Simulated scan of single mutants.
Amino acid sequence: MGKSSKDKRDLYYRKAKEDGWRARSAFKLLQLDEEFDLFKDVKRAVDLCAAPGSWSQVLSREIYQKRHKEEVKLVAVDLQPMSPIEGITTIQADITHPKTLQKILEIFGGEPADFVCSDGAPDVTGLHDLDEYIQSQLILAALQLTTCVLKPGGTFVAKIFRGRDIDLLYSQLSYLFEKVICAKPRASRGTSLEAFIVCIGYKPREDWVPSLDSNKSTEEFFEGANIGRSGNLERLDMPDPEERLIANFIACGDLNSVDSDATYTLAGSDKKASLDPIQMPTAPPYKKALEMKRQGKI
Rank of each mutant, 00 (worst) to 15 (best):
2 G>Q: 12
2 G>S: 13
2 G>K: 14
4 S>G: 15
4 S>V: 03
6 K>F: 13
10 D>K: 03
10 D>L: 05
13 Y>S: 02
14 R>Y: 09
17 K>F: 00
20 G>I: 02
22 R>L: 06
25 S>Q: 07
25 S>E: 12
31 Q>A: 04
33 D>V: 04
36 F>Y: 14
37 D>N: 15
37 D>I: 03
38 L>N: 01
39 F>C: 06
41 D>I: 00
42 V>Y: 03
43 K>Q: 14
44 R>W: 09
53 G>Y: 01
59 L>W: 05
60 S>P: 00
65 Q>H: 15
66 K>P: 08
67 R>L: 01
76 A>D: 03
82 M>D: 07
83 S>H: 02
83 S>V: 01
85 I>D: 12
86 E>W: 00
86 E>I: 02
88 I>P: 00
89 T>K: 09
92 Q>M: 14
93 A>W: 11
95 I>C: 07
96 T>W: 01
102 Q>D: 14
105 L>A: 09
106 E>Q: 15
109 G>I: 00
110 G>I: 05
113 A>E: 11
115 F>R: 11
118 S>E: 08
125 T>G: 11
128 H>A: 13
131 D>G: 11
134 I>F: 05
137 Q>W: 00
139 I>R: 08
140 L>H: 03
145 L>N: 00
154 G>D: 09
155 T>A: 00
156 F>I: 04
159 K>E: 06
160 I>S: 13
161 F>H: 10
167 D>F: 00
168 L>Y: 12
172 Q>F: 03
177 F>P: 04
179 K>E: 15
180 V>E: 13
181 I>F: 08
183 A>R: 11
186 R>V: 02
186 R>P: 10
189 R>T: 04
192 S>W: 12
192 S>H: 12
194 E>P: 03
194 E>T: 11
200 I>T: 11
201 G>C: 10
208 W>I: 04
211 S>F: 08
220 E>M: 03
226 N>C: 10
226 N>M: 07
230 S>M: 06
236 L>S: 01
238 M>H: 08
242 E>K: 10
243 E>N: 10
243 E>A: 14
247 A>K: 07
248 N>F: 01
249 F>E: 15
252 C>S: 06
256 N>Q: 14
259 D>Q: 07
261 D>L: 06
263 T>K: 07
265 T>F: 02
267 A>I: 12
275 L>P: 03
277 P>F: 00
281 P>A: 00
282 T>V: 13
283 A>T: 05
288 K>M: 02
288 K>I: 12
290 L>D: 05
294 R>Q: 14
296 G>N: 10
298 I>G: 06
298 I>K: 05
